[in-house]
Design a protein around this nucleic acid. Sequence first.
DNA 1: TTTT
DNA 2: TTTT
Lengths: 150, 150, 150, 150
Amino acid sequence: MATLNKVTLIGYLGHAPELRYTNGGDPVAHFTLATTETWKDKATGEKKEATEWHRIVMYRKLAEISGEFLKKGSLVYIEGKLQSRKWTGKDGVERVTVEIIADDMRMLGGRHAGHEDGQQAAHDAEPRHQSAPAKGRQPQFEYEDDAIPF
Amino acid sequence: MATLNKVTLIGYLGHAPELRYTNGGDPVAHFTLATTETWKDKATGEKKEATEWHRIVMYRKLAEISGEFLKKGSLVYIEGKLQSRKWTGKDGVERVTVEIIADDMRMLGGRHAGHEDGQQAAHDAEPRHQSAPAKGRQPQFEYEDDAIPF
Amino acid sequence: MATLNKVTLIGYLGHAPELRYTNGGDPVAHFTLATTETWKDKATGEKKEATEWHRIVMYRKLAEISGEFLKKGSLVYIEGKLQSRKWTGKDGVERVTVEIIADDMRMLGGRHAGHEDGQQAAHDAEPRHQSAPAKGRQPQFEYEDDAIPF
Amino acid sequence: MATLNKVTLIGYLGHAPELRYTNGGDPVAHFTLATTETWKDKATGEKKEATEWHRIVMYRKLAEISGEFLKKGSLVYIEGKLQSRKWTGKDGVERVTVEIIADDMRMLGGRHAGHEDGQQAAHDAEPRHQSAPAKGRQPQFEYEDDAIPF
DNA sequence: TTTT
DNA sequence: TTTT
């Protein structure tokens, strides 16, 4: 295919992760993440600020770790892909929501930093980047991905 | 701040860039970009494929270059940030559109690869990444690299 | 061209930035950055850890900001490119040193987090990423976002 | 840990991958990758160009795929981490080599584009990014990582 | 030489 | 609406 779909974010959680479960019993976590950019208006010289809210979705082990260690205000590094999802509201209007399906997360502290225990890299499925030294790597857990209807 | 909002894509243009102009006369380009992932269904063993469409927006010089060299089917590398935008349709319903505001683009060829002339990196505003070689880059900056013992 | 050379790091400074000046008077900062990965040895089950040290180089404004706000132990996000440099030691042996020429830096706190004033994104040359919000950013660019039906 | 060590490259292979095997029988591929940046000298106005050569290392399945499909001149997207390795030459001098341990590769074509069959994303270990749709994902292969001494 |  |  030769295509790439990647999102990298560092931001603050707007609320604690909401943890749910699929029919198959797999955990799914949802939360929002805020990134803020600031700049100085060239004309008026005044400081400006804009916040972007991102919808983060995590599955399986990453969902569990986030559910356990992340809180409102946590600062995290997130890596994932963009995925849009169509849904129809009660008003009968079809809408599209764009979400980031995360597959890597690192806790960076922040206002309400979590337990020391959580200060690690966490990945969806097999670790790839940080967690993959040249020798002695470990396979990890088995997950059935079928049926994640949320 | 300490936040980061970054998207990295490699994909195919769904249509040639639409070039418009702001009131101030600055060019703005819009196009869609397809990324496709393929996988094999664990249960049935059949090949699966899913395509994600991304809405790309470019300004100024990057918009001009894209308008000139990119076509339907072009393969490009895009770097930018996520930005959501609210708008109200003719039906009076408010919706949110998520776009990627690009600030870096590289042509990678594809089915209808553009001119050789366009086979370069292009950036919004001042170059940052690729554009700072060790020696002889910019007149306003002469550095003797020989003696950097670190 | 169509090439890309990019490094993204989050790590801890091994020592405060060393600030020097080129003949032309431009500031250059050097420091080392540690990234650490941990894993569990599959066979023995024991915890393993490996630290990688990266040589970071910054120029101009980014060098100044880092010289002012970063210390030993600071946690930072760094973006840049790989660049190798040949040099001959006093022993007459030629060696190659690989450095990361940074063009983006964000302070993330860490043990000895810097001033609040330093808690911002900093870029080499003109800002590109974070710095281009949808409205009201720059005087030289007025865009009416209301009517971008795409 | 909260650290990150990531390299992203798009470049051309300097030579076909050299495929070797560890004592444990696992494949390891080595090749060099060229990234080139071009700029115009502000003072003289002449075109400048600098090429950076990166040492890429791949293991297991990624090594196999690369050994099969990549050639001299292939254009690829590479993702991985920086890792330095000390070694002592026949002259008794200790040197450090910095390599990129790749965990993701996408073929982008290039001068001598490979088989159509190879035009896919390939990952080290479990797929994470592109290859991880919401449903029906697949675990993949089992590899014993022990003993990769090259 | 960092950090958790 | 792209591409392989």
